[in-house]
Amino acid sequence: MRSLIRTHATEFSLLAVIVIISTVLSVATANFFSLGNAFDLLNISAVNIIFAVGLLVVLIAGGIDISFAVAASVVQYCTAIALGWIGGGGWISGLLIAGSLGVLLGCLNAFLIHRFRIISIVATISTFNIYFGLLMFFTRGVSIYDLPEWLTDRVILFEQEMPDGTWIEITLPVLVMVICVVATWMLITRTTIGRQLYAFGDNPEGARRFGINIGAMQFIAFGWLGLMAGIGGLIQAHYAQEVVPNALYGRELDVLAAVVLGGARLGGGKGSVLGCVLGVLLISITQNGLNLMGVSPFAFKMIVGAIILVAITLSNTRIERLLPFVGRGAGR
């Protein structure tokens, strides 16, 4: 147990913080502690979690990507246009188009990084500006409201009224989110490729000496994030029922904060899907709770920012110091 806590310190402390916040909120508000609200939270967080697990893979491989959120916007727009060309399409064709476009944009990043040895933050800040600039230039900032019906209709996979009068709803975004989370978890923990990604992020030179294909690692990591960005983009369009070119602008930093809060390390080799999901949920729960408490929506972000700042400060002041029973590691 001790070793489990030690190796999963971030996940445990996040869970503890979530439990504390949830307890406070359920005492302070009438509606927080209900299944209905819990499922609402999942619905709201679905898109961010999809982005987050994608970004996690890139962070594990030792990279960073600033461009994925605007890439998702580009995908949304192009998919909407492409669906128009093929006469409407459906969920399968939509996901295929969005996914492949996303992979393509992700692979462009990987290409720049691998072929020309450009550091990932430099490459993706460039592509961030290129994607966003071109998107705004060609769309002139005009939104698309005329989306196919299948895309804008809410898909409720399961619903049930609870005794307390709230509704449990599982919607399509949640299903897609769960599939993305499980797929990412499979990729990074159960396949040799995933473990190679960890190894590459942990010690690139060591990985190279083992004959790991470095280029493939970059393309897989950024391609996977591209795939998640594409899928997340389409789901976001479905959720919002419109395509606004700058709707996702700035989302990259929020997601980055959540993923790193979840224990992923800038620099590679570390991070888990569980921590990543908990990181996103912590932020959503806080916002949701503040909402229910009747706090002004303008104050949300301020409080969320303060919470992240405190969380980082605490999580970096060494978990051992806060939990004396864990004891010191074997390191000298």
């Binding site: 930093l253 800038l266 104050a299 972000k301 969320v304 920012g305 700042l309 980082i312 400060t313």
Partner: peptide, 26 residues
């Protein structure tokens, strides 16, 4: 925060950014 906790500056300044944006909007 950066000097004493060695937290990553990207993260610290990011949360400061979210905080200040919220404060300003509030």
């Amino acid at each position: 925060v950066i000097a004493f906790t060695r937290a990553h500056p990207i993260l610290v300044s990011l949360s400061m950014m979210i905080f200040l944006r919220g404060l300003g909007e509030f």
